[in-house]
Amino acid sequence: MILLRFVIPDRDRRTGQFTGLMSAAYDLLRAGDMPQAEEDELRRHVEWVETNVPVPARFARKRNVSHKQTHGISWVKADAVDLVSRFRAIAGIAERHGLVVELLQTDRPGYIVHEDAWQVVAEPFHGD
């Protein structure tokens, strides 16, 4: 199974990994400094994702308090065509606002803690 991750090459302080595209989209919306039509377009794509893609109940393998630093990373299934299309549209808007968006691809995301029709959430393997 091929998995994709749209990222901004800034490190997320919770995970130590690159920041995911949805976090960047929320930041752009909060900033409120884009033309209204573009903001509406971005909001439509974000709301589609929020409505159609479930929020995983778990982002870590262990529930132990000592493992609170452990946090899974969301990966999009390459065959989730509608979601990939939305992410590409969000990436285009982000790039027009000066963000660099990279597309990562893997078939080994780490220890899987959640999977649904759209995505996989996995804790990266040690050293990844």
Rank of each mutant, 00 (worst) to 15 (best):
H97K: 14
E47A: 13
P35K: 01
M22K: 02
G20P: 05
R11E: 15
R43Y: 15
D33S: 10
L103H: 05
E123K: 00
Q69R: 09
T106M: 04
G16H: 02
V55S: 06
L83Q: 09
P124A: 05
R44L: 10
L4D: 11
H97V: 03
D116I: 06
A24C: 14
K68R: 13
A25W: 05
E38Q: 07
R5A: 01
R14H: 12
L3K: 04
I8V: 15
I90W: 03
L28A: 09
G98A: 04
P124E: 01
E123C: 03
R13P: 14
E39A: 13
R88W: 15
P54L: 04
L103P: 08
E50I: 11
E123Q: 06
G110E: 05
Y26V: 13
R11P: 01
W48V: 08
L103I: 14
Y26F: 15
H45L: 12
N52I: 05
E115S: 07
R14M: 09
V100C: 12
A80Y: 12
S66P: 00
W48S: 04
L104C: 08
F125E: 11
V46W: 03
D33A: 11
L28W: 05
K77I: 08
L4A: 04
V55Y: 04
N52K: 12
I90T: 05
Q69M: 09
T19C: 05
R58K: 12
L99S: 09
D128L: 07
V49K: 03
S85Q: 15
G98Y: 07
K77M: 12
E123N: 04
L28C: 10
Q119E: 10
R13K: 11
A57M: 03
R30N: 12
R43D: 08
H45K: 03
E102M: 14
W48G: 04
D116G: 09
A25N: 06
D116F: 10
G20V: 04
H97F: 02
G72A: 03
V76G: 08
F18R: 05
R14I: 01
V76I: 15
I73E: 07
V84E: 10
G98E: 07
F87W: 14
G20I: 02
A91R: 00
H67D: 13
R13S: 10
L42N: 04
P9F: 13
E38N: 06
V46E: 00
G92E: 14
E115I: 06
V76C: 11
D10A: 13
V53I: 11
R63P: 06
R43G: 06
P54W: 05
V46L: 05
D10S: 13
D27H: 15
V53P: 01
L29D: 12
R5H: 06
R86Y: 10
V55T: 11
H67P: 01
E50N: 13
A78K: 04
E38W: 06
Q36W: 07
L83I: 11
R58E: 07
K77V: 07
A122F: 02
H97Y: 12
P54E: 02
A60C: 09
D82A: 12
G92N: 11
A89F: 09
H126F: 15
D12Y: 03
G127H: 12
P54Q: 01
R63A: 15
Q119Y: 09
R108C: 09
V7K: 00
G98I: 06
V113P: 00
F59Y: 13
P109G: 03
V7F: 00
